[in-house]
Amino acid sequence: MNENPIVKIEGLTKTLGRKNVVDDITVDIYGGEVFGFLGPNGAGKTTTIRMMLGLMKASKGDVQINGFSVKKQFVQAMEHVGGIVENPEMYGYMSGYQNLVHYARMNGITTKGRIDQVLDVVGMRESSGQKVRRYSLGMRQRLGLAQALLHKPKLLILDEPTNGLDPAGIREMRRHLRYLAEEEGMAVFVSSHLLSEMELMCDRIGIIQTGKLIDVQNVHDFVGGIEEKTLHLTVDPIREAQKILKVHFPKQTMITKGKTIQLQTAPDKVPELITELAGAGINIYEASLNGGTLEDKFLKVTGGEGVV
């Protein structure tokens, strides 16, 4: 990750009527990272994105992109950002390629072949001659991504990029975003209301609720750490496993369901437990670690809804 933040969001606030739809959000986003913007529907994610892209005016605070204020230096700021807001709506009566030509012109791109390059990146070279009207949602999302990458921006903003994609499409989108952050050094800002998806895609996740940024967490802190999480073990024979685990956790009542044992442990201890179980000749079919601070917090703020 780079030292200097590409995006500086400072005290960003949007007041509609008397309500602060986005309330004093401050966060920095760096090159090379995928930043997840997580919150239930109506939490203010899209409004924040609209302010970052200059579609809406901030009531208070500002966004700086690559050092340029979206409020005061709109044109310079926009040169360094590409994005999709909600659905990537493009001109249906033109082909995908023609749409890209249009956006390239507006971005002042004169390099020949840049359009073909981005089409290759998103795998749309073949279908770029078709009218956008005939595109499936997945194709539109890809073309949307191509459009956002045309001018090689330092910041990519995607609003619910996996909306309407099938599992294969989601995996592909995830791969794209990881590639852009890791290989191209871009800062990628992704919003979603699905925690599971964010965990797989992002380096850091910020949780937003009723316009406030409640918490920002590193996703990789999930893996290690001494904070207790819930461990699910599917093992056979289950009795033997319970005996061994009892030695380590004498005070805990383990919940058993079929061949699955559920217990609370610090992630640090997991490798050790598994080695011991395996050493005792117990077959381990599955071991998974759930929960932790992020999920707890997210569940609390969303009331358990919106998590899949």
């Binding site: 709109f74 044109v75 999709i84 807001v85 709506e89 507006m106």
Partner: peptide, 14 residues
């Protein structure tokens, strides 16, 4: 109406 205004107005053009 078509929503295309969003991708149009996030270009580096006033």
């Amino acid at each position: 109406t078509n929503g295309t205004i969003k991708l149009l107005l996030i270009r580096p053009v006033k």
